[in-house]
């Protein structure tokens, strides 16, 4: 018999029981779907707790039976309230809520802010323990409006590889912020593909009429910005002073530190110039292991920059 760990089963039960008791009668299928558990396990665990209790009132502690696919709960006595939020859950809720309050469209008098205030107070703190500050450039609001209203925009985009800005028509789907930068995921008329653009490189935005391209079903989510398989990868050996790279950029893999505290980091390289900038900024804190073809990239870039000073 396949068994989930006892602790996980009990935890799930302690979350489910108050919800079931509040409703009185719930179809097994509905409860199973809501709490992401298969029906057989759900029924088995509920039948088990229905037998729990203490002498002399066994069977009265948790008054529950299952009849023709419906869970019926009687007078609630015990486990009527859910378990407290643990530290990790509390942080998750507050951080997500505070972050969302910082995004365009958030209403300070809205339901989210009211809910957050109640959660924070319930956790025994005033309203100041978790703060998210993420400035929103004007362009972000414009792009968000375009995504909501299904409009296209004509932009002038300065990519970090090209010398001059390019003129493009974008159909924005998602505007997102990660690692302190804003991005827009949009259909791009130049390439005919859905691509990710950095908002701070957009130099001008003008409305260009209603959207003509429907949003694809799968859009990249925050945290996987450059995760497409066709982006080149580099492997770096990074000293402790250079560890910020791991926090700052999306990485595929990080090894355990060696004796000197150095990690091997594999990360997507959006362009050679981007990697040059990264290597020169890291200086002695990094060496490039792979690919072979980029071995002297840092040296070449440093030589070019040094030419300014001579």
């Amino acid at each position: 018999m396949s068994q989930r760990p006892a602790t996980e089963r009990l935890r799930r039960l302690l979350v489910m029981l108050p919800w079931l008791m509040e409703r009185g009668e719930v179809p097994v299928a509905e409860a199973a779907e809501r709490f992401r558990i298969d029906e057989a396990s759900l029924v088995r665990d509920l039948e088990l707790v229905a037998m729990c209790g203490l002498p002399p009132y066994v069977d009265e502690m948790i008054d529950l039976f299952i009849d023709e696919g419906v869970i019926v709960t009687g007078v609630p006595r015990l486990f009527t309230r859910p378990l407290r939020l643990n530290r990790v859950e509390a942080f998750e809720l507050l951080a997500a809520g505070r972050a969302a309050m910082n995004l365009p469209g958030a209403d300070p008098d809205g339901a989210l802010n009211r809910g957050l205030l109640k959660v924070a107070r319930g956790l025994g703190e005033d309203d100041t323990g978790v703060v998210v500050v993420n400035p929103t450039p004007v362009t972000v609001a414009t792009l968000t409006d375009a995504a909501v209203e299904r409009r296209r925009v004509a932009v002038s985009y300065q990519s970090h590889t090209a010398d001059a800005p390019s003129e493009r028509v974008l159909t924005p789907y998602v505007v997102a912020t990660a690692h302190g930068k804003w991005y827009v995921v949009a259909h791009d008329d130049r390439s005919g593909e859905v691509r990710t653009f950095r908002v701070d490189r957009i130099e001008s935005v003008v409305d260009a009429g209603p959207a003509e391209v429907a949003a694809p079903e799968e859009l990249p989510m925050p945290g996987e910005w450059f995760a497409e398989g066709d982006v080149a990868r580099a492997t770096l050996l990074v000293s402790p002073e250079g560890r910020w790279v791991i926090e700052r950029y999306p990485v595929d893999a990080v090894s355990e530190p060696d004796d000197l505290g150095r990690c091997t980091v594999r990360l997507p390289v959006t362009s050679e110039r981007w990697l040059e900038r990264l290597l020169v900024r890291l200086g002695p804190a990094v060496s490039l292991l792979e690919p072979e073809s980029m071995r002297n990239l840092a040296e070449r870039a440093a030589t070019r920059v040094l030419a300014n000073y001579r």
Binding site: R81, P82, L83, R84, L85, E92, L93, A95, A96, G97, A99, A100, M101, L103, G110, A111, L112, R114, G115, L116, K118, V119, R121, G122, P222
Partner: peptide, 23 residues
């Protein structure tokens, strides 16, 4: 026990949306 936080249904839904946007 989790104390009753007095959350209204729209407030719980707003927290759900916030999680979907960020986590």
């Amino acid at each position: 026990e989790l104390p009753d936080l007095g959350l209204e249904p729209d407030e719980v839904r707003a927290l759900q949306v916030a999680l979907a946007m960020t986590r």
